[in-house]
C-alpha cells in the first residue's frame, strides 16, 4: 500500500489519497491521471491493468486500486 501511496502522491501531490473515496465520481482524477496511474502501477507491481479495468469503482479510492492490483496479481 505504501508503494501505491507514493505513486499516487507523485502524480497528484495535491490530493489526500488516504481520505478520498470518490476520486472519479467527484472528478478529482481526470483521464490523464488515470492513464498515468495505470501505467505506473503496471510497471511497479508487474500487473496488466487493461482498458476493461478502467472503471470508476476500481479507481475511486486508493483502497480500490490496491484491491485491483491484488486481484490482477492473483489471476
Amino acid at each position: 500500500m505504501d508503494e501505491l501511496r507514493e505513486i499516487l502522491q507523485e502524480i497528484r501531490p495535491d490530493l489526500d489519497f488516504d481520505k478520498e473515496t470518490s476520486l472519479i465520481d467527484d472528478k478529482l482524477l481526470d483521464s490523464f491521471d488515470i492513464i498515468s496511474i495505470a501505467g505506473e502501477i503496471n510497471t511497479a507491481f508487474d500487473v496488466e491493468i487493461n482498458v476493461e479495468n478502467l472503471l470508476p469503482e476500481n479507481f475511486n479510492s486508493m483502497e480500490a486500486m490496491y484491491e485491483l492490483i491484488c486481484r490482477l496479481q492473483d489471476e
Binding site: A38, G39, N42, V51, L54
Partner: peptide, 16 residues
C-alpha cells in the same frame, strides 16, 4: 478511443 490507445502496449512502451 482515448483509453484503448493510451493503454495499448505501443503507447505504454513509448512512455517508458
Amino acid at each position: 478511443v482515448f483509453y484503448p490507445v493510451s493503454m495499448s502496449g505501443m503507447a505504454q512502451k513509448l512512455g517508458k
